[in-house]
Design a protein around this nucleic acid. Structure first.
Lengths: 328, 328
DNA sequence: GGCGGCACGCAAAAGGTTTTGCAGTAGCAT
DNA sequence: ATGCTACTGCAAAACCTTTTGCGTGCCGCC
C-alpha cells in the first residue's frame, strides 16, 4: 500500500508538497510538480479516500436514491446525471431504496458523510427520513416532491400532464374515464389524480369516487387495478394509468379479457418509457424527460458544491409533452 | 457533528468501550452496552465512515460497474444484488462506465479503496483496466467475461444460447440466417457469433462472412445493421440479433421497409428484457436471468468478505432458456 | 554589492475511529 | 481467607491525509 509518504520520499520532497501537487490548492514550482507527478505515476499512488475525507476533504461522490430500479424511468435519470458528472470526474452512486423502508434512518445512516451531495426521489420514504436527508448538511435535491423545509427541487408538472392526457381522452369522446394510480400516498399519484379530476370537472363530467383505484407502480399493480375496474358491470371506456408500467398491466388485463384497445377501452400511461412505444397497441402517454431531469439535478448540485449559490432554494420545472399513440 | 467522544462522555465510559459496542468485536457487559446504546440513540451518533475506513475498517459498500444503464438488463442485475445485499446492510453503488473509457484507470481511481468489493461487466474496458480491478486487492467478480488472471466469474453460456436460437430458426425452415452483433471486440459478441456459426455448421448450412455485421448494442445499432442486411439484393430470411435492443432496432428497420416479420424475415433477440415481450411482434429470444446473475455475484462477494473462501477461483454458470414468440 | 520581498517548500497539528496490550476487579475454588 | 482466573473497561497508538503558519533561499532592484 503506497502512501503519500512513499511518494514524498521518492520525489525528494516533503509530504505536504505532494499533497499540494495532488490537490492543487497551492501553487507548486513547475519543476517540483513534475518530479512529484512522475513519482506518483511510477508508484501508482492514490490518496486514501478515507483519510482525505477525514481531514476535511470531499468524497468526490454524489448519491442518487431511487424508489426502484425496476422502473426504467430511474436508470435514465441516473444516465442524465452521469452526463453532467462524468466530465467533472465525480462518482455517481445509485441506490435502490426499495426494501429499506422500515428503518426510517437506513438511508441516512448509509449515506451520511459518505457523499458530498445527494438527490433523492423520496416517494415512500417517511417524512422524518426526508427531513433527515434535508438536514444532513450537504447539498440536496429532491425529485418530484417538494422538500418539506424548502430546498432545491426538480420536477415536472404532474397536474397539468394528467390534465392534458385526460382532456385528450375526453376530446376523443370518452365519457366514463377511470384513474388507476400507484401508491396513493405519494405526491405524483396525488397530483396526477388532481389533474385527472380537474380535466373531468372542466368538461362538466362527473367525478366518481369508485372510478379511482390505487395499486402499486408496477405492471402487476396495473393488472390488479384493471381487474377491479374492468370486471364491473359498468366498466369505464377509458383508463388513465398513473404511469407506463401500470398501463402495461392494464393492457395485459384487457388482453386476458378479450377487450379491444382502444375500441372497448382506451388506455393511457405516463412517463413514456421505451416500452410504451413498443407495446401493442402503442401507448398514448405523457413524455417525462428523465434524462433531462437527471441533468438538471446534477447541475443544481454542482452549483452548490462550487459555492455559486448561497441559500436560496431553487425549483426547476421541466415540461412534459402529450404523445398520442394508438391506445387512445 | 457528534463524535464517539461525545457518546463516551454521555454514557460515562471510555471511547474504546463505545467502539466495542458499535462494532461488537469484543464482548461488553450488558448493562454497559445498554447505557452506551441509549446514548448513541439519544445523540444520534454515527461513526464517521472516513475515520472508520482509515483505521482499517470496511467501507460497507460494494460496487457494480456496468457498461451502460440504458440497457435494462443491467439495472436488473443491480436489483438482484440488492436482494442479497440489503439484508446484510451493505450499500450498493452502481456506476455506469460509459463515457469513462478513455483514461484506462478512471474506474480504478474512482473506486480503489472506496469499496470493499466489486463486480464489473468489463466490456469495452481495456485489458489493463480489468487487470487493475483484479489486482485491487479486494474481492472481485467478473461478469460475462473470464478475468485474464483467473478469479471469480459469473456468466451464462452465450455459445449455447446463440446456438439454440439459431437452431430454432433452422428448424423453422430458415436457410439464409444473418447475425447482427454489437461491438465485435467484446466477449459475448464473439461467443454468440460462435454459437450462431456452430448451429449453421451443424445443419450443414454455409457460414457466410457477409452475413455477419457488427454495430453497437443499442436500438440504433440494430437499425443500422438491419439496413445493411436488408437493403441487399439477396437479403437473409432471418436475423439473429446479439441482444434485444439490437433486435428492437431490426424490427424498426423492417417496419420502415414494409417487411413482414416473421413472414419476410424472422428476428430473434437475446436477454429477454421486458420490451422483448411487448414489441410487436413479440420477440423470440434467449432468457438471460439478470436478477439471478446479480444475486450470484453478490453471494460470491459476500462469501469472500466473510472469509469463507480462500483463494480458489469460482465460476458460476447460469442457464439460459429459449423463449419462442411470434417474431420467428 | 546589499537589502527587501516573494515564491516555494517544510514541519507539525488535526481529524475521528479502531485496535490492543494492560490493569483492575469480582467471583470462584481451594 | 487467599490466590487465581475470567471478565471488563481503559489509555494510547495507529491509520493517512490536508492544512497552515513559518522559515529559507533566491531574485531583483536600488
Amino acid at each position: 500500500m503506497v502512501g503519500i509518504r512513499d511518494v514524498a520520499e521518492a520525489a525528494g520532497v516533503s509530504v505536504s508538497t505532494v499533497s499540494q501537487v495532488v490537490t492543487g490548492r497551492r501553487p507548486v514550482a513547475a519543476a517540483t510538480r513534475a518530479r512529484v507527478e512522475a513519482a506518483i505515476t511510477r508508484l501508482g499512488y492514490r490518496a486514501h479516500p478515507g483519510a482525505s475525507q477525514l481531514r476535511g476533504g470531499r468524497t468526490g461522490t454524489i448519491a442518487l436514491i431511487v424508489p426502484t430500479l425496476e422502473n426504467p424511468f430511474y436508470p435514465l435519470v441516473a444516465v442524465g446525471m452521469q452526463d453532467v458528472l462524468v466530465p467533472r470526474n465525480i462518482l455517481l452512486t445509485v441506490t435502490d431504496a426499495s426494501g429499506m423502508d422500515r428503518s426510517a434512518s437506513a438511508i441516512h445512516r448509509l449515506l451520511s458523510r459518505r457523499v458530498d451531495a445527494m438527490v433523492a426521489a423520496p416517494f415512500g420514504l417517511p417524512e422524518s427520513s426526508l427531513a433527515e436527508l434535508h438536514d444532513a448538511g450537504i447539498p440536496f435535491v429532491s425529485l418530484g416532491k417538494a422538500p418539506p423545509g424548502g430546498g432545491d427541487f426538480v420536477h415536472t408538472d404532474d397536474v397539468s400532464g394528467a390534465r392534458e392526457v385526460t382532456t385528450h381522452l375526453i376530446e376523443r369522446g370518452r365519457r366514463r374515464i377511470a384513474f388507476l394510480g400507484g401508491e396513493e400516498s405519494v405526491v405524483p399519484t396525488q397530483q396526477r389524480l388532481e389533474g385527472y379530476q380537474a380535466a373531468l370537472r372542466a368538461a362538466g363530467l362527473p367525478v366518481r369516487g369508485d372510478d379511482v383505484v390505487f395499486e402499486e407502480y408496477t405492471r402487476e399493480g396495473g393488472r390488479k387495478g384493471a381487474a377491479t375496474l374492468l370486471d364491473r358491470d359498468d366498466r369505464p371506456d377509458a383508463i388513465v394509468a398513473a404511469n407506463d408500467l401500470i398501463a402495461l398491466g392494464v393492457l395485459d388485463a384487457t388482453r386476458a379479457r378479450g377487450l379491444r384497445v382502444p375500441d372497448d377501452v382506451a388506455v393511457t400511461g405516463y412517463d413514456d418509457i421505451e416500452a410504451a412505444s413498443l407495446v401493442s397497441p402503442p401507448l398514448t402517454t405523457i413524455e417525462n424527460p428523465a434524462r433531462e431531469i437527471g441533468r438538471a439535478c446534477a447541475r443544481l448540485l454542482l452549483e452548490r458544491l462550487d459555492g455559486m449559490v448561497t441559500d436560496v432554494a431553487r425549483t426547476v420545472a421541466l415540461s412534459t409533452r402529450l404523445i398520442v399513440r394508438d391506445s387512445s
